[in-house]
């Protein structure tokens, strides 16, 4: 289980994931070796799954980001698996979630521009198996990004 020190460390690190262990340790007032040990333990326990680099798709030339929400045909028991396997093969898909609700699957898709999006949508998305309904939400702006979890 997490103790107060783990929580303090995770709160501080989440707020500034670019901090190095040395800086992180100094900020919460513990020795670097203690911080390293704590982080290793959080990794071993599976609480910390990894530290990922954030890619700004816009800066990389992908100006369009669309959230696609799918309702799938429920007639085939393997529909979800088949759909997910096919969607995984589209390189422009950056996130994939499954849901309980009206929406079954959400895909976050990036495209270079509207022309690219149109091609992608017609040739790759609409040809995915078992789609009953699709709804697109086009990203205008990110207002709040992965805020610190209240741990």
């Amino acid at each position: 289980m997490l103790d107060d020190l783990d929580r303090r460390l995770l709160r501080r690190w989440q707020a500034d994931p670019d901090l190095h262990v040395t800086e992180l340790a100094a900020e919460i007032g513990i020795h670097q070796s203690v911080a390293t040990r704590r982080i290793d333990r959080l990794r071993e326990a599976g609480v910390l799954r990894g530290v990922h680099g954030v890619i700004d798709w816009k800066a990389l030339g992908y100006a369009v980001e669309v959230s696609l929400r799918f309702t799938l045909e429920k007639s085939s028991p393997r529909a979800l698996d088949r759909f997910l396997a096919a969607a995984e093969g589209i390189p422009e898909v950056v996130e994939m979630q499954t849901f309980l609700g009206r929406v079954d699957v959400r895909l976050a898709v990036v495209a270079r521009d509207l022309g690219h999006w149109q091609t992608l949508y017609r040739d790759r998305i609409l040809t995915l198996p078992h789609i009953a309904d699709i709804e697109a939400l086009m990203q205008v702006a990110r207002v709040k990004t992965d805020a610190v979890l209240p741990v």
Partner: peptide
Amino acid sequence: ILAGRELALDLEAL
């Protein structure tokens, strides 16, 4: 293009 880092946390474990 490389816009910092993020922690991947197991929400359920937290």
